[in-house]
């Protein structure tokens, strides 16, 4: 009876691999265009703070028995809004973010250890466990990703104008603070859906690396966003394939592939510029 068992195992494997790839692509779709704005506006540390806070959200949601997605989203959003509100009020932003990002992470890890009755491996949420993504997770990831992608496309012109110069936006009747809020909101949703895929420590990598890779080859903001989507998708699929092939952790493998693509595109960009 070895043959049917093997077929069953392969079917099962295919199933979770397909789900994992779909989850990775979903996150890449939303993260890549948003990541362009994170790069252009130099918000990388802001993304870190939001992502690290999500760990605290995971702990709280396990403690209160609500869904991990809802808990992570709520805390990530709170963190993002707090940071947004504090920005431009004379605080040294990088210091403030450093304090908030790492204390949120530390409090989150401590809170996880204190939860009674739940044995949770924090590694799952620090590095993600994309292979454990179920059908309902997939639905949450794709709904979240589509909302963020839709929001980014809808606000694209206004976001781009505000990014170039807030006063240009004001003069045209756009409120750059509202656009900043759109980005903050999008970032919190991406963090909440991606925490299971790449984990809190590597989410920002998925935002930034595809966008930065696309920058080397792009000549317009839109080309950079499309390029980032392509590179993000390729990283997700390639990383999962590599992790299956070499039996390596999936989240970090995805980021490694993205990093290699960053190197390749930058070398290509340099040779094209000089050659």
């Amino acid at each position: 009876m070895t043959i049917p068992t093997t077929t069953g195992a392969i079917e099962m494997m295919d199933d979770f691999l397909v789900r994992a790839v779909l989850a990775g692509i979903g996150v890449a779709l939303a993260a890549a265009p948003l990541g362009c704005f994170v790069v252009w506006r130099r918000m990388a540390y802001f993304g870190d703070a939001t992502a690290h806070a999500a760990i605290l959200g995971v702990a709280l949601s396990l403690g209160f028995g609500i869904s991990v997605f809802a808990g992570a989203l709520a805390v990530a959003l709170t963190m993002a809004l707090t940071v947004s509100a504090l920005s431009g009020r004379g605080y040294a932003m990088d210091t403030l973010l450093g304090v908030m990002a790492h204390s949120a992470l530390a409090f989150g890890l401590v809170a996880v250890s204190l939860i009674k009755g739940v044995r949770l491996d924090p590694m799952t949420y620090l590095f993600g466990d994309i292979l454990a993504v179920g059908k309902s997770d997939l639905a949450v990831i794709w709904s979240g990703a589509m909302v963020v992608l839709g929001l980014t496309i809808w606000r694209w012109q206004a976001l781009l104008t505000s990014t170039l110069n807030p006063d240009l936006a004001y003069a045209s009747g756009i409120n750059p603070k509202r656009e900043q809020l759109v980005l903050t909101l999008g970032l919190a949703v991406v963090v909440a859906v991606a925490i299971k895929v790449v984990g809190a420590l590597l989410i920002v990598a998925l935002l930034i690396i595809p966008a930065a890779s696309a920058r080397a080859l792009a000549r317009s903001p839109e080309a950079m966003a499309y390029g980032a989507v392509g590179i993000g998708t390729l990283s997700a699929a390639g990383g999962l394939w590599a992790s299956y092939l070499f039996d390596t952790p999936s989240g970090p493998s995805i980021v490694c592939v993205a990093a290699v693509l960053f190197l390749v595109s930058n070398i290509l960009g340099k040779t094209r510029a000089t050659g």
Binding site: V39, W40, R42, L164, N165, R215, R219, S220, P221, M224
Partner: peptide
């Protein structure tokens, strides 16, 4: 108006 070098436009 300074355009961030990461923004190709």
């Amino acid at each position: 108006l300074s355009i961030d070098p990461t923004l190709p436009i």
